[in-house]
Simulated scan of single mutants.
Amino acid sequence: MRRFVVFAVLFPPLAFIVAFWGMLQILNWALGEKGTADYGQLVLLPLAYMLALLPALLTAVVDDVLARRNIRYRILWTAFAGYVFIFTPLLAALLTGSIHGPHLFLFGIIGAVPAAICSWLTGRTTPVPRGTTS
């Protein structure tokens, strides 16, 4: 249960930070434009929770399964799951073809970084209940 709480609480704001205060600033710098990082963007944080909560919980399920099975490189696999699941809010637009282009693959980083951080914070494995042997 702790794993799902960590992902539900931390994943959306971390995705917001990666998107607006990370990737957007790098993109502006690469295009030679002025930076746009300011605290006025915090008003978008509730929207980040609405859009990123489903990918966060789906990623938490994957992380939980990986932790229960003691899979090696769990954080890396969870980051990959976050990369894939962050596209779920855009699924309708992706299927209709309204969003396209090679830069679209960079959007997955917005889900991969928070997934790796949340997976790392939840610990190495799921605790074994008392009275059982492993």
Rank of each mutant, 00 (worst) to 15 (best):
L44W: 02
R74M: 08
P13K: 02
L94Q: 05
L76Y: 11
I109A: 03
P89T: 07
L51S: 08
M1R: 06
T78H: 06
F7M: 02
P55D: 10
Y49D: 10
G97F: 09
L42C: 09
R3D: 13
V6W: 05
A52P: 00
W29V: 12
F4C: 12
R74A: 14
L66W: 08
T59W: 07
F11E: 11
F11D: 08
L47T: 15
G82Q: 06
I86D: 04
V84E: 02
G22F: 02
Y49H: 06
R74Y: 05
P102T: 12
H103V: 14
V43R: 05
L76S: 12
T59D: 07
P114S: 04
I117H: 02
A79W: 06
A81C: 09
L121K: 02
G22Y: 03
R3Q: 15
L31F: 13
W21G: 01
F85Y: 12
D64R: 12
W120D: 00
V128N: 05
Q25C: 02
W120Y: 14
R68H: 13
I75H: 02
A92K: 08
G108T: 07
L66M: 12
V65E: 11
F16I: 05
P55G: 10
V9S: 03
V128R: 13
A30K: 04
P89L: 08
M50Y: 09
A8H: 09
L94N: 04
A19W: 02
Y39R: 01
T126V: 15
M50H: 02
L51W: 07
Q25G: 09
G97A: 11
S134C: 01
L44C: 01
L47D: 06
V62Q: 08
G97K: 09
A15E: 01
L14A: 03
L66I: 08
T96S: 15
A115P: 07
A19H: 14
L58D: 08
L51G: 05
T122Y: 02
V128F: 04
A115D: 01
I71N: 00
V128T: 15
W77S: 11
R3E: 15
A92N: 10
L53C: 06
Y49G: 03
L104R: 00
G82K: 08
F4Q: 11
L45S: 09
L53A: 14
G101S: 06
V61D: 05
L104W: 01
V9D: 01
I109F: 09
I26P: 00
R72W: 08
G131Y: 04
F20Y: 12
A30H: 10
M23I: 14
G123A: 06
L94F: 08
V43Y: 04
L121W: 11
A93L: 13
A115I: 13
A92M: 10
W29S: 13
L24A: 15
L51H: 04
Y39K: 01
P127F: 07
P12N: 03
A15D: 01
